[in-house]
Amino acid sequence: MEFAIIALAAAGAISLPALATAWAQSKIGAAGVASLAEKPEISGTVIILLAIPETMAILGFVVAVLILLQGGG
């Protein structure tokens, strides 16, 4: 039971930031594509902007790993 709660906590730690990242990337991606149509030379900047919200998912992953390591053993 305890391990199930730890696993659920780890799943929450990664899944919620991942959903937030997906939402943010959908907005940035749509705006980025529209901007690229106007200015193709900003492709590099758009890729970098798209990578910025991934921080949430990545930190969520780190937290999930820490929960599993500290709680699960």
């Binding site: 991934e54 990545i58 930190l59």
Partner: peptide, 13 residues
């Protein structure tokens, strides 16, 4: 500084 945790996250993934 904490943002560099991505080095570990991506490497592990």
């Amino acid at each position: 500084v904490m943002s560099y945790a991505r080095l570990m996250a991506l490497g592990t993934a």
